[in-house]
Computed example of a mutant assay.
Amino acid sequence: MLENLRSFAQPYGGDLILPLILLAVVSLAVLWQFKSRMDVAQLRRMIRVAALVALLGSVFAMQLGAAYYALAIVLLVWGVVVGIVFGREIGRKR
């Protein structure tokens, strides 16, 4: 099964995209658990950090060439999802 995933991911950035997707999903799950324990200032800080990581990571991935555009998309989607989840939590706490 892992070989099927590797062959599927080959045109989208190779072996690097699989651990990146796993890291994005795990980090979203962990952040989902901790969002209720953070205050508004920490939530805003996390949104800024997620935006910075997503932007810089996607720029570097796009600089590597067209084969790594999927990595840039994964990073941007991760940053947007973190921003939406934490933004809703900020709205709920107000």
Rank of each mutant, 00 (worst) to 15 (best):
Leu16Lys: 12
Ser58Ala: 15
Val74Gln: 02
Lys93Met: 09
Ala70Met: 03
Val30Asp: 04
Leu43Ser: 13
Val77Pro: 00
Val74Trp: 01
Ser58Val: 03
Ser58Thr: 04
Val85Glu: 13
Leu18His: 05
Ser27Ile: 08
Gly79Trp: 00
Val77Ser: 03
Leu71Cys: 07
Arg92Asp: 08
Gly65Thr: 06
Leu56Ile: 12
Pro19Asp: 11
Met1Asp: 11
Lys35Trp: 08
Ala67Trp: 04
Glu3Cys: 06
Ala66Lys: 04
Pro19Thr: 08
Gly83Asn: 02
Val81Asn: 01
Asn4Pro: 01
Met1Thr: 11
Ile47His: 05
Val80Lys: 02
Met62Trp: 08
Leu76Pro: 03
Gln33Thr: 08
Ile17Cys: 09
Ala9Gly: 05
Ala70Arg: 02
Leu5Asn: 04
Phe60His: 04
Val85Gly: 03
Gly14His: 09
Ala41Thr: 10
Ala67Leu: 06
Ala72Arg: 00
Arg94Ser: 13
Gly87Tyr: 05
Val59Ala: 04
Ala24Met: 11
Leu5Gly: 08
Lys93Pro: 12
Trp32Ile: 03
Glu89Trp: 04
Phe86Trp: 09
Leu16Trp: 10
Ala24Lys: 05
Leu31Ser: 08
Ala70Ile: 00
Gln63Asp: 03
Arg45Asn: 15
Val82Gly: 03
Leu71Thr: 03
Val26Gln: 06
Glu89Ala: 14
Ala50Tyr: 03
Gly83Cys: 04
Asn4Gln: 13
Met38Cys: 12
